[in-house]
Amino acid sequence: MIVQIPRPISSGTESYGLGDPSEYPVSLPLPKLSSPSQGLESLKWPTNFLSTLQATGEAEYLDDLKFSSLHAACVLSSVSNAVIEEIDPSKALEVKGVMSFLSADTISASGYCNFIRIKQQPSTGMLCNWGSGEFKFHCCEAGRFRKGDKWQQGIHHTEMDIAIAAAEMVIVKYKDLTEPILTIEDAIRENSFFDTRGINFMKGNVGRSLGVADVIVEGEVHVGHQYHFHLETHRALCIPGEEGCMVVYSSTQNPSLVQQCVSVALNCPQHKITVNVKRVGGAYGAKLNRTPPVAMACAMAADMLQKPVRLVLDLPTNMQLVGGRSPYLCRYKAGAENNGRITAIEMHIFNNQGSHFDFEYPNLGNLPMFIEGVYSIENWKLKEKL
């Protein structure tokens, strides 16, 4: 039986005091679009502190840094679930101004590391692999080029647009193409899951509570893929220094992770890697643990060529390479009293991570915390599959 349960509109308020003036600027409430006319002139803060710089376009971001540099571009795979048979960059290298081409073979021969272990990226499990060998799904990363979570190669040029055009001239041949599993429904039908991942969680006695519930509601909820759409795409500027040092400018929310991963890529200690963050032009979480591949690729090119290299992803590459919030499917059964209070809920949640783990790695362990933060339910059972 399905019964419509009335629920009034939720509302809430939050009041912010003015704090203690003797402790200003600590506890001073600052509006986003603040200006001296709003009472801040007494603090004698420099005008460049004010966020009006962002509104007027005067604020400087990574691309505003005046460094003469080479430009890198990504070569993306065009298929999913295939084996790379051959990569031919010869036509791209004939373009005037193109200096080099980096691939898995190139960086391996130069002694670089193109793989970051899962534990070195605790929140993401992103594999930083330059493309060579098998593609698990359609997508790509940065510095080399993945279009399926693997990088293929990098073209370096003095002009960004020519670098991008040259990258499109790289010929990649594939073999052993297979039909990819793209949706959660496909994965359920094919029973394609990471068997060692996922989590089962139970609180209270769900079976008993559902058995005595006044109302039972069953159904499913699907949340599709979401792209973050930050205005500033992923990018990095790497400047080699003396004695193997590297200065990295990165549009990242996680500079310490960028430092760690770049040091692994260059096979050098972390103290030789300096990471600077000028500003982040939008992120929404997408630059928390997806920025290392861009910085790593850029750093390897800069170190090998011993020249400053800038890697700026155009929007199509950014959308294919970086990913986003992954799709979920939840099949649920909930029990409630006649007054609308939920007494028990059972959920089977599927998460589409693709061929490897992303933000939710390793086992959706945060879901119980997130779910319990919405409703206080005495009895609930959760089964998760990736």
Rank of each mutant, 00 (worst) to 15 (best):
L65K: 12
P122M: 04
Q253I: 01
S209Q: 14
E85L: 09
L40N: 04
R144F: 15
G39H: 10
Q259H: 01
K147I: 07
W45Y: 12
N205K: 12
W380S: 05
T56N: 09
F137W: 10
K307V: 04
T274C: 04
H138P: 06
K173F: 13
I342M: 08
C298G: 11
V212M: 09
V374R: 09
R146F: 13
E86T: 01
I87S: 05
L315Q: 12
I84K: 04
G323A: 03
G211C: 04
N267D: 11
P292R: 09
A167R: 04
E85Q: 14
G131M: 02
R7K: 09
Q120K: 01
G57I: 15
L53C: 11
G133V: 07
Q353W: 14
D214N: 13
A165C: 01
V280I: 15
P8W: 00
G148W: 05
E218L: 08
A82N: 03
F145V: 07
P21M: 04
C330R: 06
T106L: 05
D88S: 03
L257Q: 10
L367Y: 14
L28H: 06
P89E: 03
S15D: 00
D214S: 08
K147V: 10
G324K: 11
L321F: 01
K307Q: 10
S132P: 01
A59N: 08
Q259T: 02
T317C: 08
R189M: 05
A236C: 15
N276H: 15
P6T: 07
S192I: 03
G285K: 15
D358E: 07
F357E: 00
K136M: 07
G111K: 01
V223Q: 11
L257G: 05
V26L: 12
Q54E: 11
G111D: 02
T13N: 15
P8A: 07
F193T: 08
K381Y: 07
A167M: 06
M126W: 02
A142N: 12
Q270K: 14
V170E: 06
T291V: 12
A213I: 11
A297Q: 06
Y24M: 05
F49M: 13
I155H: 02
F357W: 01
P25Y: 04
R331D: 02
A82S: 14
V247A: 00
I377M: 07
V374L: 13
D303F: 08
I345V: 15
S27V: 04
R331W: 03
L288P: 00
S355H: 12
Q152A: 14
C298P: 08
P21A: 00
A301V: 12
V172W: 05
V277I: 10
I181Q: 04
N81K: 14
I116V: 15
I9H: 05
S51W: 13
A142T: 09
S80I: 01
